[in-house]
Design a protein around this nucleic acid. Structure first.
Lengths: 338, 338
DNA sequence: CTGTTAGCGCTTTCAC
DNA sequence: GTGAAAGCGCTAACAG
């Protein structure tokens, strides 16, 4: 591998000139710069990463930490890791995947060894030990997801509350007034990231504001049938349904409606909101407010790069505005038979 | 962050003694070593990664490349990336995720900048430009999957041919003799990684060896119904079925059997072989010979670490022996009605 | 068994 | 506008 000295010799300049010609950190006469660039081209020179890191005190690497709790579906988080990687590349960073069993160990190591310039934290739980670590570590970190305590840390997430309100508004605009929500399993609502809570609470508050009676049901781990039953007990003439669930439960809910002879969107208008899957894979393509990994990760990386490069002060909690995608599963209610 | 000099001062020794005490690369008196370790502990010292890389010419980082062709399911590859990361950590390496749109660019960059000590190549296609690159690059690389030309490169993969034979043998041992294979879609068999071919050819050869008439069918992208039809046209009294398919197609095949009133394993014994999903998620838990990401990735990392650390000569193609997992979907055939 | 020293290849003052 | 030189923090000869 050629070094910067090789390039300097080839171009007939000094090493520092090569460095400056490549970084643009000071002005170089046009023709000398060209001689340097030609030499770089001819030799196929790329600066040695570790030497550059050592001298510049910048690794151009972001770490990504995704804890491996055994119950969770790994491939879901990995999509986020992928999106972080794509976004990071666009900012000139590579990404290091940290999956230590002890979630904190990798963070601590990458900070202490200066292996990475900053950390993107995935799959954030309500009580996340990595939040405390981030407060202590004095190393740039951005969380995708929102833990209970957000003081002293930087978070990015979809605005689940706004998503809930938009979903309700869409149904109300279509003349639906008996609107139910199928949320996440009770256990998950408590234990995991707090987005199911944020969604549910906003749903309840907003429906109440609109003079509707809020109906929320919690599915089992894989099936929505019981939840649907619960909803119909409260709202026998259900005509609007919001799904903030996994793909499996969403499909199960659609199956449940079909089994009861209820058509979508004729009898029940349905929208899937704050969900990580494309509704095109369901038996009926639903209107949706997606939990867009690319959007969250892109924003997180942008913020992290800002902190690393310009020492920008942390913007606290950044909520990504929801986007409503219509697919025909919400249409005006048919006039009711008298 | 404390440096090695800080530790040396704190322990009352020289920097090199600290280095050697930590690396164990030369013998150190027990009590001095202890003084060093105490100082390290007290200061919370971790060696700066870039300085270490630069001096040792070793990054302790493996790159992982997974090309992003848009049609492929990303989360599937990401599971492999995860397994590589876990295995690499066990060998003392971190992993850098490379997802450049141009698959080669990341490989070239990580090699030329010495950012990584070696590369694990995922999602290998039959004609993979990264194979040529690896031959040219003079940088350790291990492929998970087997391209057409394997000269000059190192590959690891499940022994799909052996898996096919074992699947057939299990069915034959259960008295089944009218055995069909549902393979991958025709287009995939040609375009992708060549494992569908290896599996299919071994299936055909082995059934023929056993005096059976080989029956192979190719599903559509998401459904197996037509393939099942094709199989039944050739083997109307089908009593054994091998599935080398995606999860979706496997489920579709089971649905197709049920729809035709054929029971599993009573009428048809079924085994899913060389598949990347756990059969427990299917409507019937099938006997399976899994394509075990952890096994392949573990082996690949082990080989790569050997090349990097000991300059071990590359072992060419390494095939992972298949493992047969019984779940009750292959039982002896019922005596046929006369 | 331990210390001194010379780099590793780059960035960035400082000097012209 | 360019060059010389001093590190960045570590490892690994080289000397005792």
């Amino acid at each position: 591998m050629p070094t910067i000295e090789d390039v300097a010799r080839e171009a007939g300049v000094s090493a520092s000139t090569v460095s400056y010609a490549l970084s643009g950190k000071r002005s170089i006469r046009q023709d000398t710069r060209q001689r340097v660039l030609d030499a770089v081209e001819r030799l196929g020179y790329l600066p040695n990463a570790s030497a550059r890191m050592l001298a510049a005190k910048r690794a151009q690497i972001m770490a990504v930490t995704a804890p491996l709790h055994p119950d969770t579906d790994q491939s879901a988080h990995m999509v986020f890791a992928l999106e972080v990687t794509k976004a990071a590349r666009a900012h000139g960073y590579d990404t290091l995947l940290l999956v230590d069993d002890d979630a904190s160990e990798g963070m601590r190591r990458s900070a202490a060894t200066a292996l990475a310039d900053g950390i993107v934290v995935l799959d954030v739980a309500a009580h996340d030990e990595r939040a405390d670590l981030a407060r202590a570590l004095n190393h740039p970190a951005v969380f995708i997801g929102i833990p209970d305590r957000t003081d002293g840390i930087v978070c990015v997430d979809l605005d689940f509350a706004a998503a809930a309100r938009e979903a309700v508004d869409a149904l109300v605009a279509a003349g639906r007034r008996r609107i139910g929500l199928i949320s996440h399993p009770r256990t998950a609502v408590l234990r995991e990231s707090n987005f199911p809570l944020r969604f549910r609470d906003a749903f309840a508050a907003h429906t109440r504001e609109l003079g509707l009676s809020p109906a929320v049901a919690y599915p089992d781990l894989h099936a929505a049938d019981r939840a649907l039953e619960d909803l119909l007990a409260v709202l026998p003439d259900l005509d609007g349904l919001v799904l903030n669930t996994t793909e499996e439960v969403a499909q199960s809910a659609l199956d449940g409606l079909a089994a009861r002879g209820m058509t979508v969107p004729g009898d029940v208008a349905v929208v899937a909101a704050g969900v990580a899957f494309p509704t095109s894979r369901l038996s009926i393509t639903l209107d949706t407010i997606p939990l867009d990994a690319a959007a969250s990760c892109g924003k997180a990386v942008e913020i992290l790069a800002g902190i690393v490069e310009d020492g920008l002060e942390a913007p606290g909690v950044t909520l990504i505005p929801p986007t409503y995608l219509s697919h025909g599963s919400v249409v005006p209610a048919a006039p009711r038979p008298a």
